[in-house]
């Protein structure tokens, strides 16, 4: 233990000068603020300063954390309130009577299961398609050498700059020309229109390519010596090694589908074919007798839409935060 303490680098702590043993000739530069103070006084002042800064930091952080959490809290308690209480002059921060019946009512009005089913089907198939195309393309960009590879990759990266709204207009026309959009649209056609245009993502290709590049060359050489083809090397070695990135992509894709609103709204002809966000926004939670929107029902529906995402986050926090965070790391 003693050795450790003596080995701590000088930079870790401030050095203090013992005034009693200082001679006039010693070259010591003191700052003006610290002149005339004893070592203990300076130390104490610094400690107090440190405590104050820490407390202020915590106050700042906790206040903002409260603001961040507040909408969630308000969503949950409003979903359990009676309509009179929601619109009353004195707002309550906890429901007087907990109305679980709001949820029962909402499940009757808001066709949650249909929207949920549609969303999951679209999410699963668009994720599978994306993973397949992404793995193949990332492998080609990371491991194979062919003419024009770098220029194709550069073009791909440039397309990331283009706002998706540029594409929506023409994609709508394209999908319509495939016969997937129209007044006599079937459920399968609606699914195809919502899935196929999202079977590729340049950003995920970029992400996975970076991951593939980190896999040591020796593995590739060893596989070559063993007579393995590129194809089996890709699926037997690279894909398992890149599993964390693939899981991140899967979850982010699911979250994306759960959140998608514009495109499903455009390409579907019937409310039954739409996804969860569309269902939530277009469902009417108006009370038949009063003619006003029942916020209690509305918030119960938003809770139902938010909870699955939260569960996903609780179980896959690491992958989500890594996948999102990697977007910002250079190189």
């Amino acid at each position: 233990m003693k050795n450790e303490s003596t080995q701590t680098p000088i930079l870790e702590k401030k050095r203090y000068v013992d005034f009693k043993n200082v001679k006039v000739n010693d070259n010591i530069v003191l700052s003006l603020e610290e002149a005339g103070k004893t070592v203990d006084a300076i130390k104490r002042a610094e400690k107090v300063n440190h405590v104050i800064v820490t407390i202020l930091t915590y106050i700042f952080i906790l206040a903002l954390a409260l603001i961040v959490v507040f909408p969630f809290y308000w969503m949950i308690i409003t979903s359990l309130k009676q309509n009179d209480e929601i619109h009353s002059l004195t707002q309550t921060f906890f429901p007087n009577i907990v109305m679980w019946s709001n949820y029962v009512h909402v499940l009757q009005v808001f066709d949650f299961t249909t929207y949920m089913f549609n969303t999951i089907v679209v999410a699963i198939f668009s994720t599978i398609g994306t993973l397949l195309t992404t793995v193949l393309a990332a492998f080609a960009f990371a491991r194979l050498r062919f003419k024009g590879r770098d220029s194709v990759f550069a073009v791909f990266l440039m397309t990331m700059m283009i706002p998706g709204e540029m594409m929506v207009i023409s994609n709508y026309i394209t999908v319509a020309s495939f016969g997937w959009v129209g007044s006599n649209q079937t459920l399968i056609q609606a699914y195809l229109a919502m899935i196929v245009p999202f079977w590729t993502s340049v950003f995920y290709i970029y992400l996975l390519r970076q991951n593939f590049k980190q896999i040591p060359n020796e593995l590739y050489l060893a596989a070559k010596v063993d007579g393995k083809s590129d194809w089996s090397f890709l699926w037997k070695v690279m894909v398992p090694l890149a599993a964390p990135t693939l899981i991140s992509i899967t979850i982010l894709k699911f979250m994306g589908t759960w959140n998608s609103y514009v495109w499903p709204n455009l390409v579907t002809s019937k409310a039954d074919y739409r996804l969860i966000s569309n269902g939530l926004r277009s469902s009417s939670f108006v009370d038949v007798d009063a003619g006003v929107t029942e916020y209690g029902y509305q918030m119960a529906a938003t809770v139902l839409v938010t909870v699955p995402l939260f569960l996903l986050f609780v179980f896959f926090r690491k992958y989500i935060m890594k996948g999102v965070g990697r977007a910002g790391i250079k190189g």
Binding site: I61, L64, A65, V68, V69, F70, P71, F72, W74, M75, T78, I86, M255, W258, N259, Y261, I276, S277, L280, R281, Y295, Q298, M299, T302, V305, T306, L309, F310, L312, F313, R317, I320, M321, V324
Partner: peptide
């Protein structure tokens, strides 16, 4: 705290927009 500050990311944009309109 880090997790709390990340929470708004894992929400449905439409759903929370509706919560804000209630608030």
């Amino acid at each position: 705290l880090q997790t709390i500050f990340f929470l708004p990311y894992v929400t449905n944009a439409i759903a929370v927009g509706m919560v804000f309109s209630v608030i």
